[in-house]
Design a protein around this nucleic acid. Sequence first.
DNA 1: CGGGATCATGTTATCGCTACCATCAATGCT
DNA 2: AGCATTGATGGTAGCGATAACATGATCCCG
Lengths: 344, 344
Amino acid sequence: MSTQTRGAHQAVGRPSVKLSDVAAAADVAPMTVSRVLNTPERVSAETAQRVRAAIDRLGYVPNLVAGGLSSRRTRMVAAIVPTMAHPMFVELVQNFTDALRAQGYEVMLSLSGYGDVNETTLVRAVLARRPDALLLTGASHDAPTRQMLADAAIPVVEIFDVARRPIDMLVGVDHAAVGTAVAGYFRAKGHDRFAVFAAADPRARIRGAAFAEAARAAGGTVLAETVIPAPSTIAAGRAALRALLPSLDRRTALFCSSDVVAFGALVEARAHGLAVPDRLAVCGFGDFELSAASDPPFTTVSVEGARIGRHAAGFLLERLMATGAPSRARRVKVPFRIVERASS
Amino acid sequence: MSTQTRGAHQAVGRPSVKLSDVAAAADVAPMTVSRVLNTPERVSAETAQRVRAAIDRLGYVPNLVAGGLSSRRTRMVAAIVPTMAHPMFVELVQNFTDALRAQGYEVMLSLSGYGDVNETTLVRAVLARRPDALLLTGASHDAPTRQMLADAAIPVVEIFDVARRPIDMLVGVDHAAVGTAVAGYFRAKGHDRFAVFAAADPRARIRGAAFAEAARAAGGTVLAETVIPAPSTIAAGRAALRALLPSLDRRTALFCSSDVVAFGALVEARAHGLAVPDRLAVCGFGDFELSAASDPPFTTVSVEGARIGRHAAGFLLERLMATGAPSRARRVKVPFRIVERASS
DNA sequence: CGGGATCATGTTATCGCTACCATCAATGCT
DNA sequence: AGCATTGATGGTAGCGATAACATGATCCCG
């Protein structure tokens, strides 16, 4: 029937419809079918219509693996985030994905967890798929990772952290400033006894450490700097507060590295009849829906994930769509906001 | 320097290290390098070592795009789930990913949302990347989608729903049975007035409808079948309960299609001084951490996402690793469990 | 001690698509 | 009218890897 010479090699499965089949059916050259799919403006309307009809008739689904190899562009952007259990990341990824999809890129999502997967290994696996660009959470990466990224020569945007020397582009959140700001907020309310529950995650620890430091610098007492296993849970928040109870004989201000932990602490406080905010003032982090709906609703730090996602996508797209303009490093710091509620 | 003939074609960017470069550096044929990476047991120890040294020295990262085209195996499994905002899906995906990773497959995750993305379009985009297998949430798919999946000729597992005629394999949850069981549970507690808040998501609606039907069949009164916009939020649960308040003049049993909604309903109930469980009994769905930590902790339906993920991965792997055994359709129904707590 | 079996490695021919250049017709401009 | 320009389409040559087969070398055992 067709002129294709089917190699003896790899005769597995039914041969699927390919671009050349569509070309034959529409009586045009394969290259023309490719143009209809990728640069339709360079094909005459009637030819395009004929080709589209053939595509529909044959149920052709382009093979982006082949296309990616040939063009050296996979139209895919990889995103490495620690978790999707955190609503901020959900929103971030959603916005990042939407912005890229609008420009014809798909996002390949990889979850790194907290420490259980080796970053170098993960990045290598991701780069093996040859993404056109990469989003990376955090801004401290080891030498082999940085080397691989440099060799890959693709746009990279680091998010959710600040770095002295970013790999390429950065959409950061200043976690130390968050800790300091929360301490300042509590001080302004007259607190002089503090405690902090921080998850065993680099950025949570930075927030916690900065909080403690600022609290001490202001002459306050830091009763505890409790480290909570990542990922954060309500139960861990309850447990941490339970352990702290004996020290809570006077008015104390507590900063939790996550709203989930803060909620747990509040539940435990209530169970022990500890008055909030008179005896224990609480501030969380993340501005999850929970923080507003809890009883009492609690104060928290809000960071707009959506904004980070959009910014990051914008930075990458600027590079990806660049016609000839020199690519420049970009960095932006995303603001945060203390949302005051009844818990403090 | 090297013997490679670099085509004039596609001279973009710095040429990255490729398999043939490693081969040259290690003084072996390209095929041998490929073997070291894919079937090391077929290479002598000393050659393998020499090749590995060259790989490390050159910082070679294999190109899976090229490998995928050549072998027609991408070592990638696609997963389409509606959201990661639901902890059950997070757990499901995590377990699915882990099980596949252990066998050398990576998971490409796509979020379909609830209705905003056209499934056919999404599936086409996913298949264009030629995954070796596919996980699909839900079990009702339109004709074009089914056709594409048939043409793709890859193992497909549908999850979280039951179907009369699954596409291929199925790891289901019987949502109608959930609704019926919850109604039965409430009846056993002497309830005769019922209400249900169900999200505008196919499976949530099935749970809600089955609940209402069973309640009526038992001679009960169904005060409301409230549809909540998907995705579920605490606020929506509060609003729905607020609207229902005028009807709650007598003891009523409420089933919510999500723990998030149930939590919202409880918060609102407390705000209005409605006694739980005496006046309002509540049951959620999902067994989120929230349901146990809330005050009061509330009854919910637990479905093990981890189990679904593991099962689904197992089914796919059975096919993917099949040596020659005839592939058979598989289906399993994952059980659910009503976890009784203080709210009912 | 010889021939088939096994092991380690090399050679060849694609996988399905697209960049680049060539071709040819229609068009614009002086 | 003559010639450069533009637009639509086609032909060719890879992209970087691997399946299948080919080749020697080594091995085993009667």
